[in-house]
Nucleic acid binder design. Structure first.
Lengths: 254, 254
DNA sequence: GTCCAGCGTTGCAGCAACTGCAACGGTCAT
DNA sequence: ATGACCGTTGCAGTTGCTGCAACGCTGGAC
């Protein structure tokens, strides 16, 4: 929409392919050298472009700083909440959002069920890490050594007969979860409660958070809950898209 | 130099601090709303800016992709990483790699005590330039006039009582560092954290990057950390050798 | 040592593109 | 239902961007 800015920004992906000198930039932009020079100078002043000793231009380090700062100020919870609320509006069950931090999995958001029966959980409270669907999702994406280290250090309390019994079983479960891209907890924490969950990913593809839908047996059976899985996964993907800043331009978003 | 582009680029650091709506952007830019809108639209078309559901703007995925590509073009990082990982394996502490660019010192790689972290963790963050060991190493090697200019322009925040107090002290410290070929930060940034660092040099002998090992007092004392210095220097020298020996660059374009 | 070629840089005249205004339509809260 | 607010649009004025042409510098050829 703005010609000048449009041209200037077109320089960035061009330089991303490798360093280029003024003439090359001008040619590939289809503008006069002096025009390219002025654009490059402006980019340079903002640190987005760096000039190396041989006078060629390449992408500048401030790009890192910007990306870094942006990520630090990104709040998954804030972005996810409207989606969670909408999903809750649609299906009615309790919805959780959790993150992994320093060997723990913590709930950071929760939208209560509309039904009278509620499960006990609290925002900020550590999750039952060996059984919860969100915990499986988050741990499944850890780098292999850390995943093993965490799994080895955990206790495996037998909340119910279906609870994860030990580290070996847990790691196997994590492999399955990583493979299929979703997770469940079918009565592993409390006999009568089932959950299905899906991961939320950042721009680099890493799992930054996980969400789950929980419902007691008396309201929906495990099979019925599983029919919600596509919806849950789609919601998680929507959140991922929003979180990572992927722009769905020109594409009909399903 | 180019007003339009200058304004457009000024939006980026503004949005890095957090999402903002059209009115806020226009106000902080000092332009009319319609002008800000056109700039934001252009940034949006290039994917640098993302519009979230509440219509506010934040930085977009393309920026992260560009930052990623830019960091991959820094071949020091690729060469150094295996060495950093190996050293981390051996001594366990956190290891940083940093470069100097345009008056700033930036971390471009980091190996955590426990596991390797990719781009979006801490990397890209500007270093506490007046106290960090890597910053001293990089600035110590600048040509004299530039070194003085940079030192004069810096702030000298008193993070701790041991922080570098002013430009004169800083320049003196840089002279020492240049002389001895290594640097430390003993509680100058955070009371309980010490670092030792060494320079990585290119074929021409100039410092192209710097690495450091950091550890909290509670784990190792400053004296113990200093016993690692020969190891750190040897690693840095190994990296320097490989970096200056290979020289695969400069021919990669077209 | 001289000349030529190539590149980055600068000042300027012309005008294309950007700016800001004012008015419109939508949403939300009162 | 009403009003306030925000994003959006079309337009006239003119700002500031564009491309030209000329200059200085560097490096290579002879």
């Amino acid at each position: 929409m703005s010609q000048t800015v449009d041209r200037a920004l077109s320089i960035l992906p061009l330089l991303a392919q490798g360093p280029a000198d003024l003439g090359q930039v001008a040619e590939r932009l289809g503008v006069h050298k002096s025009t390219a020079l002025r654009l490059l100078r402006t980019l340079h002043e903002h640190g987005l472009v760096h000039r190396q000793q041989d006078q060629r231009y390449r992408l500048g380090a401030r790009l890192f700083a910007l990306a870094q700062e942006a990520v630090e100020n990104l709040d998954v919870r804030e972005i996810a909440h409207p989606y969670l609320a909408a999903l809750n509006e649609q299906i009615g069950h309790t919805i959780h959002l959790a993150v992994y931090e320093e060997g723990e999995v913590l709930y950071i958001d929760k939208v209560e069920s509309r039904y009278p029966v509620r499960m006990y959980s609290r925002i900020g409270k550590p999750v039952a890490i060996t059984v919860a669907a969100v915990a499986k999702l988050l741990l499944a994406d850890l780098p292999e050594p850390e995943r093993r280290a965490v799994a080895a250090k955990l206790d495996y309390p037998p909340y119910t007969p279906r609870s994860t019994p030990n580290a070996a079983a847990f790691l196997k479960e994590l492999a399955t979860v990583r493979e299929q891209g979703w997770a469940t907890d079918l009565g592993g924490h409390e006999e009568s409660i089932n959950c299905v969950g899906a991961p939320i990913r950042g721009a680099d593809g890493r799992v930054v958070a996980a969400m789950s839908v929980s419902a007691p047996n008396v309201v929906v059976t495990a099979e019925e809950l599983l029919t919600l899985l596509p919806l849950v996964r789609r919601t998680a993907d929507d959140i991922s898209r929003e979180y990572s800043g992927t722009t769905p331009t020109k594409e009909a978003s399903a």
